[in-house]
Design a protein around this nucleic acid. Sequence first.
DNA 1: AATTAATTGTTATTTAATAAACAAAGGTAG
DNA 2: CTACCTTTGTTTATTAAATAACAATTAATT
Lengths: 209, 209
Amino acid sequence: MAMNTLPDKTVERLSQYRRNLLICDANGKEHIFSHEIANIHHITPVQVRRDIMLIGYTGTLRKGYNVKELVALIGEILDNPDGQNVAIVGAGNLGRALMKYFTNRREKLSIVAAFDNHTDKIGTSFAGVEVYPIDQLKQIIKDKNISIAIISVPFDEAVNVAALLVEAKIKGILNYSPRPVNVPENIYLEEYDMVTSLEKVAYFAKNKK
Amino acid sequence: MAMNTLPDKTVERLSQYRRNLLICDANGKEHIFSHEIANIHHITPVQVRRDIMLIGYTGTLRKGYNVKELVALIGEILDNPDGQNVAIVGAGNLGRALMKYFTNRREKLSIVAAFDNHTDKIGTSFAGVEVYPIDQLKQIIKDKNISIAIISVPFDEAVNVAALLVEAKIKGILNYSPRPVNVPENIYLEEYDMVTSLEKVAYFAKNKK
DNA sequence: AATTAATTGTTATTTAATAAACAAAGGTAG
DNA sequence: CTACCTTTGTTTATTAAATAACAATTAATT
Ligand SMILES: NC(=O)c1ccc[n+]([C@@H]2O[C@H](COP(=O)([O-])OP(=O)(O)OC[C@H]3O[C@@H](n4cnc5c(N)ncnc54)[C@H](O)[C@@H]3O)[C@@H](O)[C@H]2O)c1
Ligand SMILES: NC(=O)c1ccc[n+]([C@@H]2O[C@H](COP(=O)([O-])OP(=O)(O)OC[C@H]3O[C@@H](n4cnc5c(N)ncnc54)[C@H](O)[C@@H]3O)[C@@H](O)[C@H]2O)c1
């Protein structure tokens, strides 16, 4: 059932489908067609059906997919039944925005700690998330059973922080600093650089119209 | 010369190469090998050479690439010589973090305005960027020659904001809200959803170790 | 001077992602 | 009751991206 090897892009889309399906559900919509989902996300209905096929769900002909059922199944696939705890490293502008934003957004994903190395940040809390000194990282990751970390420190600290996280046996890292970090195979790493996104938009926009 | 159709992924990597090459340059490094660039970014040297080939630059055998020259050429490819002006729509937590972060980071990309619809935001400024009322969007985009917009409003306002931007003849949009928006062909659209990234890390981390 | 090692630039192959094609099911209209 | 339309599920084809293979060049070494 665990569908161990879903393609990268399918996982991304399932997450997006779910968020928008929850809105449909809240609006009282019971069934939805593949082409309706496709329209929301600007993709083809075939893509949607293919993704849904991969997780083994089956819709009803002429009625489409049952919204609640599909949401529940995506949850079974994406979520860890026992939940997963997340830490934010770097309680600066971005880190604090993330704390405020993510809190209480996903039942199975909780931000339970933040870390910083500046005295004016340590001991404060944002959106209920306490900021701990960075030297307690290893201990608190263990104590609070944290398996995922978001890196939001300045670029020249990213590599150091990643090393600490590896040592603390983290399982997944989302790195928002523009400096790529190096981690062993058994840690899942995702890197995203906002400046690159903006430069990409700038490049393609340049050649428009 | 304009290299009109660089692959998507190559554009992303060129932006990342440049940022790290600038650091190398600042450290006094004059030449760099493809495998050194590759190591920084966790990709293969072939990938690096291929990207560089696509922009028509040629390194010297046994010495590698001239850092300054390569930076300059990437600039010629990615940047608009006259610069491009950027607006942020939604001066909330994320919008303000972006203003503080992007300001003075790229010579050819300037954030020159922000827009909001709440009275407590309008008229304030962050990192030198003034926040205007949303109803002045069309006028100011025209006056300030803004070609790119970043959407950072709550999800249920994203579609409205996108419509305003289309009407204002924007050329590129970077949408950070989780709600996909619809724009005509002649506008370049990039969407990024942080919750999806985190859920993806959570999914793949779940099956680790 | 010949040989080896390092490194680039380019072509070919493989792999991953997307899109197209189409059979099957079942409801609707004539 | 039959023909047709809609929509799903799956296979097949196309496209895009990454990787591998390799020829070419030059510096250093024997
Ligand atoms: N702010 C944005 O919108 C934005 C956009 C794109 C990328 N980023 C990236 O995100 C990262 C953070 O950006 P920011 O704007 O929040 O910066 P910031 O300076 O506001 O925050 C960085 C925080 O990290 C803390 N820190 C520094 N070294 C540390 C260490 N070794 N251990 C723990 N904490 C440490 C600092 O005390 C500070 O609180 C940067 O790498 C930046 O490039 C930010
Ligand atoms: N904060 C984060 O770290 C984070 C992370 C992921 C995604 N996002 C997304 O980014 C967006 C903004 O998040 P945020 O945390 O900054 O929210 P926020 O509530 O702090 O800010 C939103 C801002 O948009 C303004 N606004 C609302 N409607 C508007 C309109 N029609 N025109 C102009 N301005 C308008 C509000 O006044 C507010 O200032 C949301 O869609 C959110 O889902 C944020």
